[in-house]
Write a protein that binds this DNA or RNA. Structure first.
Length: 133
DNA sequence: GCCAACGTTGGC
DNA sequence: GCCAACGTTGGC
């Protein structure tokens, strides 16, 4: 089982939208590095939902429910299906993540604009600890 | 194939 | 509103 982090602007599609929908197709990703991660995702993997922009905090945990399929008429881009698992007891703000030495290598921190990134099991455990989960 | 210019994204 | 980081584009 692998861990991931998916970023979205809450104004566009946020955690509450995901809960309302009961799951969604995570599409529209147009970045080559992010696509590598999308294509590596497997059903049962877990992913943190991170709100970018105004909120800048990890807010919930999702599960990947279906491996990638083409997003568009050809194989150029990919999308996966996700469903909400649980809201984090406490959101983890970006400032907290940055202040945590054990998260200094987090892919999202090292490459700030990446919308789909990987999280190691160790980093996942730290994030859950910070979230009070 | 290189690199400068430009556009986009996200944080401050 | 600004700026840094990064990706893409286009001229050479």
């Amino acid at each position: 089982m692998a861990y991931w982090l998916l970023r979205s602007e809450p104004d566009v599609y946020g955690w509450d939208d995901l809960v309302r929908d009961g799951g969604t197709e995570w599409d529209g990703v147009r970045n080559a590095t992010a696509r590598i991660h999308l294509k590596a995702m497997q059903p049962g993997d877990q992913a943190i939902f991170y709100h970018s922009n105004k909120e800048k905090a990890a807010v919930g945990v999702m599960e990947i429910t279906r491996a990638w399929r083409p997003d568009g008429p050809d194989d150029a881009w990919a999308s996966v299906a996700v469903k909400p698992v649980a809201k984090l007891p406490k959101p983890v703000p970006l400032a907290t993540i940055k202040a945590e030495p054990r998260l200094s290598d987090l892919m999202m921190i090292r490459q700030s604009r990446l919308s789909c990134s990987a999280v190691t099991p160790e980093e996942w455990a730290v994030l859950m600890e910070l979230a009070g989960a």
